[in-house]
Amino acid sequence: MRAVRLPSSQAVHAVIVASLRHGDATLDSTARALKISARTLQRHLGRMGTSHSEMLAKARLHIACRLLVDSSKRLSDIAKFLGYTNASSFSRAFVRLMKVQPVIYRRQQLARKHGQARHRRPCAIDR
C-alpha cells in the first residue's frame, strides 16, 4: 500500500471553492481534484472533525455573505452560482445558518458599509 499525502483543511476548502465556480462541488469531484479517493477524503475530514458537506456549507455561506454585500447580483443568480436549485432553497439555508433573510442581511450590511455604523456583522463562520 502506498503512502498518501493527505490535504490540509485549507487545501480542501480551496478545492471546494474552485469547484463551486465550475458547478461541481461534490465529494467525488473534490476527492478527484485532490488525487485521493472519496472514502479516504471522508475518513480524513472525519478525523479533522468535519465533513465535506459541512465544509461545502461554510464555503457557500462565506461566498454568499460576500456576494450579498459586494455585488448587486439577484438572489436567484447567487443561488445558482452557489449550486442551489433555486433562490428559495438558498434563502432557507441562509436563514438557517445566519438567522436572518439574505435580503435583510444585504440591506443591513450595505447600511453599515455606507456609514450608518462602523462595525460589520460578520458572517456566521467568522464568529
Rank of each mutant, 00 (worst) to 15 (best):
13 H>N: 04
55 M>H: 01
97 L>D: 08
111 A>C: 13
19 S>E: 09
49 G>W: 01
43 R>D: 09
65 C>D: 09
25 A>L: 01
61 L>I: 11
109 Q>C: 14
88 S>Q: 08
72 S>R: 12
90 F>Q: 01
72 S>P: 04
119 H>L: 07
67 L>N: 13
13 H>W: 15
120 R>W: 00
107 R>L: 08
106 R>S: 08
40 T>E: 14
63 I>T: 09
44 H>A: 08
92 R>Y: 05
96 R>Y: 04
1 M>Y: 06
33 A>K: 13
59 A>W: 10
110 L>R: 12
115 G>N: 05
69 V>I: 11
34 L>E: 04
48 M>C: 14
44 H>Q: 05
122 P>T: 06
27 L>N: 15
61 L>E: 15
18 A>I: 01
93 A>D: 08
3 A>H: 05
59 A>D: 09
66 R>I: 07
35 K>G: 12
9 S>Y: 08
125 I>A: 07
63 I>P: 05
34 L>G: 14
71 S>D: 15
118 R>L: 12
56 L>T: 02
105 Y>K: 06
113 K>H: 04
2 R>K: 15
114 H>D: 09
90 F>N: 00
102 P>W: 01
17 V>F: 05
40 T>P: 01
16 I>Y: 03
126 D>N: 12
8 S>W: 08
19 S>N: 14
8 S>P: 06
125 I>T: 12
79 A>Y: 05
33 A>D: 13
65 C>F: 03
